[in-house]
Design a protein around this nucleic acid. Structure first.
Length: 256
DNA sequence: ATGGTCGGCAACCGA
């Protein structure tokens, strides 16, 4: 089976790009982030007409997550179950024994901003969420825009990014603390030395060789699935199409 | 070099 994740930066604006990516890549499950639309205005019919099931939760202008799937989920839930109430940043779906958690982690704005403390707390809350529901024996995939680069190889010019909210030591530590639950970073497992990014800031447009970016989107798997993982890659194609995206789809192939 | 461009939405916020 193929599982993928894509921060689409507005599902209405990127609808054609997403449907084309689905048709071209035929994933079983695609996790979307930053759909940026209220549920009543979500273009669900376009997915259903193309043969896809979809579960979504969003709000006006910001955030929003969705899970597109060939098969209908047996169970869907939304959000962290702890206080304070959170923006629509998490959707969980179960397909038989397989659990998928799709998150859009708070970006954090600035190290000194309250949103960065919120981001660090969000990671801690997510760890509790996983610990309460799952064990390392659960076939579980954690996907999404996690707004953190793990290692120097995962960001261009890392020495200049140590005070950035997506590479600061505290957020990297918070991420590793959740990975220690038992997650394997499938892209890095299959491409141990490959410099490939999943995000390219629109504000750095003179980037023809894709040399300035970040690997902040992930497919993470617990041992029962990591052991069956066969390949993982970032697809740069949507960056060279008529409506280029800042994030790139990332997918992993797992043997049945 | 400390900028730059998007998307939503209708002024600027967020990334």
């Amino acid at each position: 089976m193929r599982i993928a994740t894509f921060n689409c930066n507005s599902i209405r604006s990127r609808l054609d790009a997403v449907l084309r990516w689905l048709a071209d890549n035929s994933p079983d499950i695609l996790c979307l982030q930053e759909t940026k639309v209220q549920d009543a205005e979500f273009p669900a019919d376009a997915f259903r007409l193309a043969g896809w099931q979809i579960a979504f939760r969003g709000e006006k202008s910001y955030n929003g997550v969705a899970i597109v799937s060939r098969r209908k989920a047996d169970e869907v839930s939304f959000g962290l179950d702890s206080e304070p109430a959170d923006a629509p940043r998490l959707v969980h779906a179960r397909f038989g024994k397989l659990h998928v958690v799709n998150t859009y982690v708070p970006q954090g704005r600035e190290i000194e901003h309250a949103m960065y403390a919120y981001k660090l707390a969000w990671f801690a809350r997510l760890k509790t969420y996983f610990q309460k529901r799952f064990t390392t024996a659960t076939p579980l995939l954690w996907c999404g825009d996690l707004n953190v680069a793990r290692h120097p190889i995962d960001v261009s010019n890392p020495e200049t990014k140590t005070h950035h909210v997506c590479y600061h030591q505290a957020v990297r530590d918070a991420f590793e603390d959740i990975l220690a639950f038992g997650f394997t970073d499938l892209f890095r497992r299959h491409n141990p030395d490959l410099v490939d990014y999943s995000f390219y800031d629109y504000r750095a447009p003179f980037n023809p060789d894709q040399k300035r970016g970040w690997r902040i989107d992930y497919v993470l798997a617990t041992p029962p699935l990591a052991s069956k993982s066969a390949a993982a890659a970032i697809d740069l194609a949507p960056r060279t199409r008529p409506k280029p995206s800042d994030h790139c789809p990332l997918y992993a192939d797992i043997k049945e």
